[in-house]
Amino acid sequence: MRWQDRRQSDNVEDRRNERMSPAGIGGLGALGLGLLMRGGSKGLLVLIVLFIGLKACGYDPVRLFFGDGMLTQTSSKIENQSSTPVNDERTRFVSTVLASTEDTWSKIFTEKGAHYTAPDLVLFRNAVRSDCGTASSAAGPFYCPADRRIYLDETFFDQLARQFGAPGEAAQAYVIAHEVGHHVQNLTGGLSGQRQENEASVRTELQADCYAGIWAHYAARQGMFETDDINIALNAAHKIGDDTLQQRTQGYAVPDSFTHGTAEQRAAWFKRGFDSGAISACNTVNDDI
């Protein structure tokens, strides 16, 4: 991919230094209240010292003692994050791909007389809290419609290459574009129709794959997505098909349990979006999948 020296998105939030502990308001919150109630002026002094110390270390003392009790470092946009390398290559890559999806979908929405509101992308390590709940790295990248954010543990890219056999920047870009596809679904009303839960999930995921292909179509036009990149992205789509993953983990596939689609389906719908560059080609509600 030729992504260097292109526009980077401002909609990336860096939480890679955020730390979480299970302490809740019944623990540290109660401690804070107890110090105030029983300690008098001395208790207040202790609280002030703790507040200053925690703040100096980059933690949010208000949230810790009187909010949800989570011990978290305050997060900010990448350009304001001082405790994490803000200019590392992976961050630049993610920001550039996200910016490309913003340009692509803004153009498509404008042509349809609509306005595209870009999602934020949250980089994290180990675990993260979203409006959809707390998730660990094991959950993989996900989109939360409640807060319109994409959540990505950067180590997933390493897992994608080593464990799933899908290396390459185009494979990583496909993952980002797929999650952006879910955001597009959220903005446009998503999928409709009366179907079984698993089948509806598969159709939703395949449409997001198709939308990822639409992004790649425009990225190729701009010289960002090169000739070999389509094969790298197709390989990634194939490697994370439900049947491929189940065969790898348990030695057999159970079609009734599929939630994302087979390897063949995922690759086919990505290719369909790439070849057409049109939302109308991604009608997984009515078309055969």
Score class of each variant (00 low, 15 high):
Ser276Arg: 07
His115Asn: 12
Asp228Asn: 13
Ile108Met: 07
Val184Ile: 13
Arg129Ile: 10
Glu197Phe: 07
Thr244Phe: 01
Asn235Ser: 04
Asp120Arg: 08
Asp209Val: 09
Glu18Tyr: 09
Arg195Gly: 03
Thr188Ile: 10
Leu121Asn: 00
Pro22Val: 07
Arg162Gln: 14
Ala263Trp: 01
Ser130Tyr: 02
Ser100Tyr: 14
Cys282Met: 03
Thr204Glu: 11
Ile279Gln: 08
Asn231Ser: 12
Asn235Cys: 01
Trp105Thr: 01
Ala146Tyr: 14
Ile176Phe: 10
Asp103Ile: 07
Ile150Gly: 00
Asp120His: 07
Gln265Phe: 03
Ala253Ile: 09
Lys107Cys: 04
Glu154Pro: 02
Asn87Lys: 06
Leu160Lys: 10
Thr84Cys: 14
Arg15Asn: 08
Val49Ser: 13
Cys57Lys: 14
Gly193Ile: 01
His238Gln: 12
Arg6Gln: 13
Asp288Gln: 14
Gly69Arg: 00
Asp242Cys: 00
Gly69Val: 01
Arg266Lys: 01
Val86Asp: 12
Val175Ile: 09
Leu71His: 01
His260Arg: 10
Gly277Met: 10
Arg162Met: 11
Gly67Asn: 02
Leu152Glu: 00
Gly58Lys: 04
Asn17Tyr: 11
Leu234His: 06
Ala161Thr: 14
Thr101Glu: 05
Glu226Met: 12
Arg129Trp: 07
His182Trp: 11
Lys77Leu: 06
Arg248His: 03
Ser257Arg: 08
Arg125Gly: 06
Cys132Asn: 05
Asn80Lys: 09
Ile214Asp: 03
Arg6His: 12
Ala263His: 04
Lys42Phe: 13
Ala263Lys: 06
Ile52Trp: 11
Ala267Lys: 00
Asp147Phe: 00
Arg248Asn: 05
Asp209Gln: 08
Arg7Phe: 07
Thr84Leu: 15
His260Trp: 08
Phe157Ile: 01
Ser76Ile: 03
Ala233Arg: 00
